[in-house]
Amino acid sequence: MTSKTNNINKELTVKSTTNNLAIIREFVENIARESGFSKEIVSKISLAVDEACTNVIKHAYKFSPDREIKILTQFNDSKLTIRITDSGDKFDPNLIPEPNLKEYHKQKKVGGLGMFLMKKLMDEVQYLTLSGNQNQVVLVKYLA
């Protein structure tokens, strides 16, 4: 059994289809578990990554199925960093307001929930634009 192994770097590249979400979650859950996170936190990390990848599939790639999503993970000094990279449409997180939940339900608007959840579930969420028209979401969780 491995726990708290330092400096684990792992990578997974999958096509941009929703049926890969289960594979992505399993990949991330294994890493989070190996990094020493509790079962509860492992589930949170897994959901946050699912939400990030769902957003990539829906919004960056508009459900086009043969694009690529790259997931890079790094565990170092009690910090798990997960980088999700796509080469789809650029996304400005500032254009999506933080939802007022009560209003949100009334509006019947379904969207933006994923971003909101990611912020609630992770310690840090960052959106980057990389060279070569790539977008990256960086999710960070600290091992308490």
Binding site: T54, K108, V110, L113, L117
Partner: peptide
Amino acid sequence: SSAGLGVFMA
């Protein structure tokens, strides 16, 4: 995930 929650909201 939120995709599932969205179904109930819809």
